[in-house]
Simulated assay, not measured.
Amino acid sequence: MHIYDKDFIHGELPMTKQEVRAVSIAKLQLEDDSVLIDVGAGTGTIGIEAATYIKNGKVIGIEKEEKGLEVIRENVKKFNLDNYFLIHGRAPENIPEINYDRMFIGGSTGGMREIVAHFMQYSKKNSRLVINAITLETLSSSMEILKEFGFKDIEVVNLMVGRGKKVGPYTMMYGENPIYIITVVKEEKI
């Protein structure tokens, strides 16, 4: 079930908005038993919502910022999740060396190449990698890195959301930040 922004605890921290979250999770094409690595988990909204879809799988969230960790813990408790595991650390050095089939990158702190290398080494065949990029620089460098690793079929979606707000008797549309959602699938011959 989709979780609305208003249902998450997030305090003053920015979070992935519900429309972007819905598309990003759809691009992951989660299975009931998927193992998702959520890199740069932030407030945890992607991984937490994903955990509600994978009843026989698990989500491993990796976040370096203490404020984000606190919010994630509160939301894991709020949604009563026993399949979400949180690691305080940075990627790729704190990503567990386990087999997994899904990875979401919401933040890489300059370690994108090494994180993709981890994906290539530890993810299973037909695993899906989804990257959300807010800046053109992140989009550009992500595309270059994915090509270096041999990905040829790189899907990029640009999502722009406008939200209506009441201004007197009128409704005006205000735009959220546009986001790029990049998706690749690890095939056997890459």
Rank of each mutant, 00 (worst) to 15 (best):
G168H: 12
K64T: 02
Q18M: 08
I98T: 09
M143S: 12
M15L: 15
K165M: 09
G40H: 01
T43Q: 05
S123R: 01
Y84H: 06
A133S: 12
V20K: 02
F151C: 07
K67M: 03
I145H: 02
L136D: 09
V157P: 00
R90M: 07
E97S: 14
N94E: 11
V35P: 01
L30K: 04
T135F: 11
T135I: 13
A50Q: 00
G11E: 15
K165E: 15
L129G: 05
S141C: 06
G164P: 03
K124C: 05
G110Q: 08
D38V: 00
G150I: 09
T16H: 04
K78L: 14
T16C: 05
G61N: 02
E114K: 14
Y100C: 07
V76G: 05
M160T: 15
I25D: 01
F119T: 01
G107P: 03
A117C: 00
E65N: 14
I25W: 01
N75E: 05
K165W: 02
V157N: 13
K189N: 15
N158M: 15
G68C: 04
E93H: 04
E144I: 10
I98M: 13
E19K: 07
I46W: 03
K67E: 14
P92A: 03
K78I: 12
G162Y: 11
I154N: 10
I182E: 07
T52W: 10
Q29H: 13
E31T: 02
K125F: 08
G106A: 08
Y4K: 15
H2E: 15
K55M: 11
L28D: 07
G168K: 08
V156F: 06
K189E: 15
G150S: 12
I98F: 09
P92D: 03
D153G: 00
M160A: 12
K152V: 10
G47R: 04
G11C: 00
H2W: 12
L13R: 07
L146E: 06
V130A: 05
G110V: 12
I182Y: 11
Y4D: 13
I115Y: 02
N80G: 05
E19I: 05
P92Q: 08
D82H: 12
I9H: 08
G150T: 11
K55V: 11
Y174A: 08
M120I: 11
G162S: 14
N132P: 00
E176F: 11
M120L: 10
I98D: 08
L146T: 00
I190A: 02
S24P: 04
V185H: 04
Q121C: 06
T52M: 11
A51Y: 04
K67R: 15
L69E: 04
M1N: 13
N177I: 10
Y180S: 03
T183P: 00
V157H: 09
E155N: 12
S142G: 10
I95Q: 02
T183A: 05
L139P: 00
G44S: 08
T52R: 14
A117F: 02
G107E: 02
P92H: 08
E19P: 03
K27F: 14
M173S: 09
K6Y: 13
H2Y: 12
T45G: 01
L159M: 10
G111H: 12
Y174W: 09
V185Y: 11
V20W: 00
E93V: 07
L30E: 04
S34F: 01
Q18S: 13
I115H: 09
I154C: 09
A26Y: 08
S108H: 14
H88A: 13
L36T: 08
E65M: 10
